[in-house]
């Protein structure tokens, strides 16, 4: 898929996320918008190799969405790929819907239930270790939020993965610098993040998480396993990217815009 088509997909999903959350009056708009280009690249450039007609294929790549706040985005992508009807998005967090605000493993194409943070990396490490044990060639990806890095279990799993040379494990950090109440560097400093991750024995790449070309380059060679180490890709992003009314602002987590802000947001995205 060429860049232009990927960009169109980004526009489509940005709108879809906003529409879905506005309709449901719930859901994490800003957390989804910060990782749109990341997930679009992974899924539409076929870096995550899966077959919607065979969701349990043992050779599929695994994707663990640890920052489950971005579920409106993942649900929309999985629908667009054919796992289920796009109309399911209209029932997001509704009585007759198949999914809600966080992530559930019962949805086709979703590997794990999530919502509590600090789980994804360890779970992904176990899945990747199993591939090593059984000589399976699939890759295991997991997308973490930067606020999630405050969870101690992430660092337990980080040490474990490098010790076991899990070069079939790819961690991605959506580095949008914001938790719910404040910027990470005001809460408890996370930087220098690359140094910390490298010190835990990982390859660490840092890129612009909204730049499709940089993302493509970062994911391009992972399947050839250039090193014994697992790879972490820190993606610098903007929480709420594309929506001036809620981008890079504290206290915009987990709530869709309302009233005038909602109208402004729709206008910005061309809805």
């Amino acid at each position: 898929m060429d860049i232009k088509t990927l960009e169109e997909k980004c526009v489509f999903h940005r709108k879809k996320v906003l529409e879905t959350c506005l309709r449901a009056e719930t859901g994490h708009v800003t957390s989804s918008l910060s990782c749109i280009e990341i997930l679009i690249t992974l899924y539409y450039k076929n870096y995550i190799r899966q077959n919607p007609n065979d969701p349990n294929d043992d050779d599929r790549d695994r994707f663990i969405l640890s920052k489950a706040q971005a579920s409106p985005l993942l649900y929309a992508i999985l629908a667009d790929l054919g796992y289920y009807d796009l109309g399911e998005l209209d029932k997001f967090a509704q009585k007759d819907g198949i999914f809600g605000v966080h992530l559930q493993h019962t949805v086709p194409g979703v590997e794990s239930t999530a919502g509590a943070l600090g789980h994804g990396l360890g779970l992904a490490a176990g899945i990747a270790l199993r591939a090593k044990m059984d000589r399976k060639l699939y890759l295991t990806y997991t997308l973490l939020g930067d606020g999630e890095l405050y969870e101690g279990s992430i660092w337990e799993s980080m040490k474990f993965a490098s010790h076991h040379n899990l070069n079939n494990l790819v961690g991605i950090i959506d580095r949008n610098y914001l938790c719910t109440t404040d910027f990470t560097e005001n809460i408890v400093e996370l930087e220098p993040l690359t140094d910390k991750i490298e010190a835990f024995g990982w390859n660490c790449i840092r890129i612009d998480g909204h730049n499709l070309e940089e993302l493509d380059k970062a994911f391009a060679n992972l399947r050839s396993r250039p090193s014994r180490k697992p790879t972490m890709i820190i993606c610098d992003t903007v929480k709420g990217k594309g929506l001036d009314v809620m981008s890079f602002k504290p206290l915009c987590h987990g709530i869709p815009p309302k009233g005038e802000d909602a109208e402004k947001a729709k206008k910005e995205l061309g809805i």
């Binding site: 590997e111 794990s112 600090g118 789980h119 990396l121 360890g122 779970l123 992904a124 490490a125 176990g126 899945i127 990747a128 270790l129 199993r130 591939a131 044990m133 059984d134 101690g152 279990s153 337990e156 799993s157 040490k159 474990f160």
Partner: peptide, 15 residues
Amino acid sequence: AEQNTILVGSGLAKE
């Protein structure tokens, strides 16, 4: 690292 133990174990068991 008991929490990681449960997580890694669950990942393996899931597969």
